[in-house]
Amino acid sequence: MAGLLERLGLLKRAGRGGSAASAKERLHFVLLHDRIDLSPEELDRMKKEILEVISRYVAVESDRVDFALEHRRRDNLIVAEVPFSKQKTGAGQVGRETG
């Protein structure tokens, strides 16, 4: 029964599974890049500067860092995944020393 309905296209929800889903996904990707309107060089510089700041406080595993643009609900997001290890010596003092 479910199989039959599915084959008739009655169970498949609009926008899922078919090419519309990839249209939506591709549009989100393209629009994020259109909207942020930064050159690859500028994006790269931004990433480096963000990492510099984080590295002042914690030890960052820089080879596993990942930056991505994402669309969630109505928001355009810059999502940074920055794995860190606790072993940074004296990390807690940095802020106090410089500030």
Binding site: G9, A14, R16, G18, S19
Partner: peptide, 18 residues
């Protein structure tokens, strides 16, 4: 085509363009 998931729906487009 929307029903078959082969075309963006009105909801998809409003969601994308806000």
């Amino acid at each position: 085509m929307v029903q078959k998931g082969e075309m963006l729906s009105a909801d998809d487009v409003t969601d994308i363009l806000a």
